[in-house]
Design a binder for these strands. Structure first.
Length: 567
RNA sequence: CGGGGCGUAGCGCAGUCUGGUAGCGCACUUGACUGGGGGUCAAGUGGUCGCAAGUUCAAAUCUUGCCGUCCCGACCA
């Protein structure tokens, strides 16, 4: 490709709505263009990168024997009603009506459609296992799109769905997909980790997420410092702790005017947050209230809480008005003494003694509170997020926490969809069996942002070769004036193309500084510079985007040299 | 959904308080010089100041409403 035939739309200043580095660089390098909140056009150079990612994904998926197909973006409501997700999915499901007033939605994921296909075309266990995939645009009406294509409303995803006669077969394919994902992310050149994950709204049993490690990541990933345990914080368990110490203080009611927060209480009473508890009120399945209790310095883990029996799903915090009406106090004053609703206490709060809590009366707190003596019976449970230094759930070592960007997620769905949509095949014994399903996603567009987050410098993007918009850029100095330079550059360009190198010849009538800056901003991994001096001495200058060293290479050896540089 | 900010040329911004000829930088066009790190000079192109209504002789500027967009929050009581 010659620059003069291409669109290089780099800019010096990014629009001020770009917050994170990958978003800024994608705009500055001219990869994407914003159309509306959470909606981006992919400009030619951005699309070129997407296509490289897609090619890797396709090759590895095909190698795993998965079959590519393509499903519609618009889905009829009936399908989603059949799986119950028309009601369950919530406002992220963008719904609309056609001219006949029939309900539709934009597909945020395709379990319903693929199950419908499986139902029609899979009749016998002999056709199983089978794994279908597509690379296609998804739409999720995010509550708050941000960070460019990292959390956009429309995005490109590779989604695969496998069908099995039994769990064993599902397990086998799950392992194949796990390996396939490792192959894909290895080829892209990521520093990534596979971690145990919660299966979220899609539902199901076993699940792993693939995270690119980056400080800007939205997810917290927990690792053991002495085993290979790794999991999303959402599903990293905390372990039960010992029995509380015997009470040493009497229960005492104290005036705490205007005090609402844990920090305020602790300041006023001169105690540590670790000696206080906080009481959160959530809705139960039968629309009454349940109290969740945490140590003052801990955070509620909503995923854990919503899995506790009796708690309404999805987890719903009770609003302050209702708390005031039913418990007689506002949020900051709820406590566990004389609290006549079920009390579920996090393990690390359940082992406390002589602690501080609200008095269920505004402007008052209790001190010297002890479980049992001062409260009704409680249920101890795992409710909180782990914190750095907690013991690892596998009993080996301590937890460290890092940030990750989720680029892939694999699930074992079991028979959730085949049950609700009645997708069965005839088994060996002649009886109909609902198929086991697996589902496997990769965020194609997010991969690009993640790659940039992980690899950039103050000049711009540093793309790995595998997904760079071009592998090599040739920067001729004075191309438009020096016929010698022009000749040499054209010849080199042609030689590279013959070797299938994805090369960009920057033949613009620009000053060298601009061409250097652009190629660095775009993150092209390899660069040749050619000038009249080189024409004189038969040399050419090479520089890698990753290093600051410039190397002189014989012009005649240039093509074989560059092939040697490739990974 | 709650709170806040912003909306003026493709991008970044000033002008708004105190109403009176719409500006700057970058980019873009043409020419000259320059030619190994976003160069210099000169001359240009480009804006119904987010939309609508109102106040006024006069509105980018004041008032009201709406729309868009970004940030924070929407468990940490």
């Amino acid at each position: 490709m010659k620059s003069s035939d291409f669109l290089i739309s780099t800019v010096k200043e990014a629009p001020n709505d770009a917050q994170i580095i990958s978003h800024q660089l994608m705009i500055r390098a001219g990869l994407i263009s914003k159309l509306a909140s959470g909606l981006y056009s992919y400009l030619p150079i951005g699309l070129k990168i997407i296509q490289k990612v897609e090619k890797i994904v396709r090759e590895e998926m095909n190698k795993s024997k998965a079959l590519e197909l393509l499903m519609p973006i618009a889905h009829p409501a009936e399908l989603w009603q059949e799986s119950k997700r028309w009601e369950e999915y919530g406002p992220e499901l963008l719904r609309f009506k056609d001219r006949h007033d029939r309900d539709f939605c934009f597909g945020p994921t395709h379990e319903e459609v693929i199950t419908n296909i499986a139902k029609q075309y899979l009749r016998s266990y002999k056709q199983l296992p089978i794994n279908f995939y597509q690379i296609q645009t998804k739409f999720r009406d995010e509550i708050r799109p941000r960070f460019g294509v990292m959390r956009s409303r429309e995005f490109i995803m590779k989604d695969a769905y496998s069908f099995h006669i039994d769990e064993k077969s599902l397990d086998e394919t799950y392992k194949v997909m796990y390996q396939t994902y490792c192959n894909i992310f290895d080829r892209i050149g990521f520093n990534y980790r596979a971690v145990l994950a919660d299966s979220g709204a899609i539902g199901g049993e076993s699940s792993h997420e693939f995270h690119v490690l980056a400080d800007s990541g939205e997810d917290a990933i927990c690792f053991s410092d002495s085993s290979d345990f790794s999991a999303n914080i959402e599903r990293t368990e905390t372990l039960p702790q010992g029995e509380p110490n015997a009470p040493s203080k009497n229960l005492e009611l104290i005036e705490t005017p205007g005090v609402k927060t844990i920090a305020d209480v602790c300041n006023l009473l001169n105690v540590k947050p670790t000696s206080s508890i906080k009481t959160l009120i959530v809705e139960s399945e039968d629309d009454s209230l349940i109290a969740l209790v945490l140590r003052g310095d801990h955070e509620l883990n909503e995923v854990k809480a919503s899995k506790i029996q009796g708690i309404k799903q999805p987890l719903q915090m009770t609003d302050e008005e209702k708390v005031l009406k039913k418990l007689g106090c506002s949020f900051g004053s709820i406590g566990v003494v004389n609290l006549n609703i079920p009390i579920i206490v996090d393990y690390s709060a359940a082992c406390m003694s002589d602690f501080v809590c609200g008095a269920n009366e505004d402007d008052k707190h209790y001190i010297g509170v002890n479980w049992g003596r001062d409260t009704k019976d409680i249920i101890a449970s795992d409710l909180r997020n782990v914190v750095s230094g907690d013991p690892s759930p596998d009993g080996k070592g301590k937890i460290e926490i890092k940030r990750g960007i989720e680029v892939g997620h694999i699930f074992q769905l079991g028979t959730k969809y085949s049950d609700s949509m009645n997708a069965n095949v005839i088994g060996e014994d002649g009886r109909a069996v609902n198929m086991n399903m697996g589902c496997y996603g990769i965020g194609v567009t997010r991969i690009i942002a993640a790659s940039i987050e992980q690899s950039h410098d103050d000049r711009g993007i540093i793309f790995p070769e595998a997904i760079a918009p071009f592998e090599l850029v040739i920067v001729p100095i004075n191309y438009n004036k020096s016929s010698r330079v022009q000749e040499l550059a054209n010849q080199l360009y042609q030689d590279c193309q013959e070797k299938n190198i994805d090369v960009l010849l920057d033949d613009r009538k620009e000053r060298p500084g601009i061409m250097f800056a652009d190629s660095e901003l775009l993150g092209i991994p390899h660069r040749f510079v050619l000038s009249d001096t080189h024409a004189d001495n038969g040399k050419i200058e090479y520089k890698s985007r990753k290093s600051s060293d410039k190397i002189e290479v014989d012009y005649k050896e240039a093509v074989s040299f560059i092939l040697d540089q490739f990974d």
